[in-house]
């Protein structure tokens, strides 16, 4: 198996682990960590493809994703901390995440 396939499958596996974590965990912080794992899996896809396609677009994309992740973490943790002040829990069942 050549390297590009190995890397693409590896990142698909990582992405799926992250997605599974979002679906099975209930702690808001852990769910958020799982989302970070998913974003990182996509970054690996971009870098592997960038090497394969011999273009820098993918790497620039990763650079931007890092900026996005930083801003997301700031906001996300801000929201979680501000909720925690009212109610000492990070369990998303207590904030009824799945109630449509």
């Amino acid at each position: 198996m050549d390297a590009i396939r190995y890397l693409l499958i590896l990142s698909a596996v990582l992405f799926s682990i992250g997605a599974a974590g979002v679906l099975i965990r209930r702690n808001a912080l852990v769910i958020f960590m799982c989302i970070e794992i998913m974003l990182n899996a996509v970054n690996l896809t971009f870098i592997a493809l960038s090497r394969q396609l011999q273009s820098l677009d993918g790497q620039i994309f990763v650079f931007m994703v890092m900026a996005v992740a930083a801003a997301e973490v700031a906001i996300g943790l801000g929201i979680i901390v501000s909720i925690f002040r009212h109610k000492p829990t990070t369990d998303v069942d207590d904030v009824s995440l799945l109630k449509g």
Binding site: V22, A28, F32, I35, G76, I79, V92, V95, S96, L97
Partner: peptide, 8 residues
């Protein structure tokens, strides 16, 4: 929080 987690 709900918006954020599902949006991300």
């Amino acid at each position: 929080l709900k918006y954020f987690l599902l949006g991300a």
